[in-house]
Design a protein around this nucleic acid. Structure first.
Lengths: 103, 103
DNA sequence: TAAGTATATTATTATAATATAATATGAAAA
DNA sequence: TTTTCATATTATATTATAATAATATACTTA
């Protein structure tokens, strides 16, 4: 009984760690904005720049960060680099956020 | 047409700011853990300490931070201080996170 | 191959978050 | 009233994040 409770606390701890890391990657106004636009589908860096504002450098750095955290993947086609959301869970999260906070 | 688009981008920007602030307040393993336990109902600081681990000081500071961000409210009754989630949106968010990432 | 365009990287500085230890408050019990 | 217990506050050192400017890469087109 006791050990089961304490196991699930340990497990909960692990899950909180990994979910908090994801939230941390999202919890910046511009990164959230980027994700919101990407939730509608793949976009190039230039398009995102136009939609989200901010300097070229910061956009690129934010995208890189989210890629490192496995929220995004990118693909170079010709002169452009296209980013998209990697994991359907992230897409679900963005939609949940929208549902909860934007209506 | 154009002005409407740009209005909604401005609005989106505002929303991203405020949602990102909430996410930022949540995006730490221990703060998320605290919130998860509080999602089940009001708890005293001591109970949370037992459930979440960490030093007394850090727990108290994290709770204060989340209170400042209006995620929590507290009430002193006798010797104990009880915290609970202030806003049903936050409760919804915690449940969504659980649904998306913990099954 | 030279020039232009899109994106990435690096360096730097400023600011913010974290962990920790030490101390303070304030209610309750002895 | 002194002591104890629960919680809060303050101070501080360390580390992480953010913003910005400058430069680099690498693909494409002239």
């Amino acid at each position: 009984m006791k050990s089961q409770e304490s196991n699930s606390l340990v497990e909960m701890n692990e899950q909180c760690k990994s979910v908090a890391a994801i939230l941390k990657a999202i919890s910046h106004p511009q990164r959230l904005m980027l994700l919101c636009h990407l939730a509608e589908g793949e976009k190039s860096v230039g398009e995102l720049e136009g939609l989200c504002g901010g300097s070229q450098s910061s956009i690129s750095q934010f995208l890189k960060l989210m890629k490192l955290e496995n929220l995004l993947v990118s693909e170079k086609r010709g002169l452009y680099v296209y980013y998209r959301i990697h994991d359907s869970k992230i897409k679900k999260l963005v939609f949940s956020l929208h549902k909860i906070f934007c209506r």
